[in-house]
């Protein structure tokens, strides 16, 4: 029952996002052609009233809004996100062409930062109040205060330019020919290091704090004291009792954080000119490629909302108490 109402809720959210996407360009002053005919435009186009009407009719913009809305929705369901002005190709095609790189970047970074966050959070909680805990805490608060683009640029300058050990732009060496697939994989990984490191560093705070909190809660439980009273070794208690129990909230949070990660790629891919969707969004903004921009917006938001939906579902499965809220 709960799951069905959740499904309905997310359906409504997607409808709202689609409607925002539909109404944004239509809510702007003027009509679709005014950016062409505006005397302040880069190259103003002169158009007779007749010509205007023909063009508007061609794009179906003379029809009532309700009809335009239905056409738009049918188009979306068919996977038609419009035509990119800059790339002169269907928007969906342009996005899918970049998807691979974003998936590689988000995938590796998520795996690394969740693992690292859990380890550091557990270490911190285990050594609570002591020097190691305070050191970790202060460093992670400080790193989390950096905007991700600033962190990325600093890493690029230090490791890419001063030390010159990692490439700072692209996902592969341009015009490279590889003698073996292994060499290609190495090249891709080599390019991945700095963007992934930036994403990991700027997102690790969430997992770290959650794990530290969760672990501190678990360490205060009676069964930990029982385990100590039984004379079990500290290492055994840490691994068998504390860690496994403290991990529960992390599992449910992981899907949720993928959403933040996707947003983070917008900046990180821009800094490192990494050819993923985030960088594409930056290009769309710089070239005023509105159809592409809207397509990416739709794609990203639905991906993030989808991740949240999955997180919700996992949560219901793992913790039956949520049902009886």
């Amino acid at each position: 029952m709960h799951q069905i109402s959740k499904l309905a809720y997310y359906f409504v959210i997607v409808l709202i996002i689609l409607s925002i996407n539909f109404s944004l360009p239509r809510a702007m002053p003027g009509d679709a052609l005014s950016y062409l005919t505006d005397p302040g435009a880069d190259i103003p186009v002169r158009m007779t009233e007749e010509k205007r009407e023909i063009l508007l009719a061609y794009y179906g913009l003379d029809k009532p809004l309700s009809e335009q809305y239905i056409t738009y929705m049918v188009g979306i369901i068919r996977g038609d996100l419009g035509w990119s002005i800059y790339y002169s190709a269907p928007v969906l095609e342009v996005i899918l062409g970049r998807l691979k790189w974003t998936l590689i970047l988000v995938g590796t970074s998520t795996a690394i930062y969740i693992t690292l966050g859990i380890l550091l959070g557990a270490t911190s909680a285990w050594a609570r109040g002591r020097k190691r805990d305070m050191g970790l805490l202060i460093s992670i608060i400080s790193i989390s205060s950096f905007p991700s683009f600033f962190l990325g640029i600093l890493l690029a300058i230090i490791f890419g330019i001063k030390l010159d050990i990692f490439p700072i732009s692209g996902a592969q060496t341009a015009f490279a020919t590889y003698s073996s697939p292994l060499e290609e994989i190495f090249d891709i990984l080599h390019h991945l290091v700095l963007p992934a490191a930036t994403l990991v560093l700027s997102h690790i705070g969430g997992t770290y704090f959650l794990m530290r909190n969760s672990m501190l809660g678990v360490l205060g439980e009676d069964y930990i004291m029982t385990a100590r009273a039984k004379g079990l070794s500290e290492r055994y208690i840490l691994h068998k009792h504390a860690l496994t129990n403290a991990l529960l909230p992390i599992v449910t949070m992981t899907a949720m954080t993928v959403g933040f990660m996707i947003m983070g790629t917008i900046f990180v891919e821009t800094v490192f000119a990494y050819p993923g969707i985030g960088n594409l969004l930056y290009n769309a903004v710089s070239y005023n490629d509105y159809p592409l921009l809207q397509g990416i917006f739709l794609f990203l938001t639905i991906a993030i909302v989808g991740a949240n939906f999955i997180a919700d579902m996992i949560y219901i499965r793992l913790d039956p108490r949520v049902n009886h809220e």
């Binding site: 959210i13 925002i20 917008i266 809207q294 990416i296 917006f297 938001t301 993030i304 949240n308």
Partner: peptide, 10 residues
């Protein structure tokens, strides 16, 4: 639920 950043950007 609507992702903040993408909407603000668009």
């Amino acid at each position: 639920t609507i992702p903040r950043l993408p909407l603000i950007i668009v």
